[in-house]
């Protein structure tokens, strides 16, 4: 399995390079069309591109919201900033 294989006028290596812009919808229409044509004819890139996009989406979905700070950390922050912790009366 080599990345220099050419399908629909694009090598797999080029497709790999274009993946980030492709999943962001940032490719020019002509480039987008040739990546789509390659993916339609290349199982390997089609599978890998799907996986890449799924991992990026999962990062946002699973880890997008940071854990709230622990009460201790929150209190020490408020103290350092010279203000009472947020829930204190």
């Amino acid at each position: 399995m080599k990345l220099d294989r050419e399908v629909a006028g694009l090598t797999c290596a080029r497709v790999l390079e274009h993946l980030p812009d492709f999943i962001d919808g940032r490719l020019a229409p002509a480039e987008r069309a040739s990546v789509e044509a390659h993916l339609a004819g290349c199982d390997v890139c089609e599978r890998f591109g799907g996986s890449y996009g799924a991992v990026v989406a999962a990062l946002r979905r699973e880890l997008g919201t940071p854990e709230p700070l622990s009460r201790d950390v929150e209190q020490r922050l408020a103290q350092a900033l010279g203000a009472p912790a947020s829930d204190d009366p």
Binding site: M1, L3, C12, L16, V44, C45, R47, F48, G50, S51, Y52, A54, V55, A58
Partner: peptide, 12 residues
């Protein structure tokens, strides 16, 4: 990263 493998989807 799994290019060329059968099931990169298994990652998730």
């Amino acid at each position: 990263a799994g290019w060329g493998t059968d099931s990169p989807h298994a990652l998730l």
